[in-house]
């Protein structure tokens, strides 16, 4: 059944990408970025998952009981923090784009090439 988790992660990341590519609103772009990122949470957690294992908190379980991998959980937590920072920052930039250009539609923003 492990493959189901991997497939779901792949599906989520593609959904996020599809959202960004076709988006008509920069806020939507930033949210889609978060969607794509949430695939990494799922992937990390499923990489470290063990069937029949419990949480890696050793205070109240008997020794020898299998636990899931705590390393990926720490990585996921770091990933969540990174994601929150990036989302906040990109939304702040979106607010500025809206103020200066009067639109948040990527199609309506002029090219920077000129």
């Amino acid at each position: 059944m492990a493959w189901a988790a991997y497939l779901t992660a792949g599906w989520i990341v593609l959904a996020g990408f599809y959202g960004i590519v076709t988006s008509r609103n920069l806020v939507h772009v930033v949210v889609c970025l978060s969607v794509a990122q949430s695939a990494t949470y799922l992937l990390l957690l499923s990489v470290g998952y063990r069937w029949g294992a419990t949480a890696p908190v050793f205070s109240d379980i008997r020794p020898g009981r299998p636990v899931v991998d705590p390393v990926v959980q720490a990585m996921t937590l770091t990933d969540v923090v990174v994601g929150a920072t990036v989302t906040a920052l990109l939304l702040a930039l979106t607010v500025q784009v809206s103020k200066r250009r009067g639109t948040v539609d990527p199609d309506a923003l002029r090219t920077l090439e000129e």
């Binding site: 990341v13 990036v86 990109l90 784009v97």
Partner: peptide
């Protein structure tokens, strides 16, 4: 801000 936003989205996708 437009340039920074493009930079941010593309690099974040790369990082993920």
């Amino acid at each position: 801000v437009h340039g920074a936003l493009n930079f941010g989205v593309v690099n974040s996708i790369g990082a993920y």
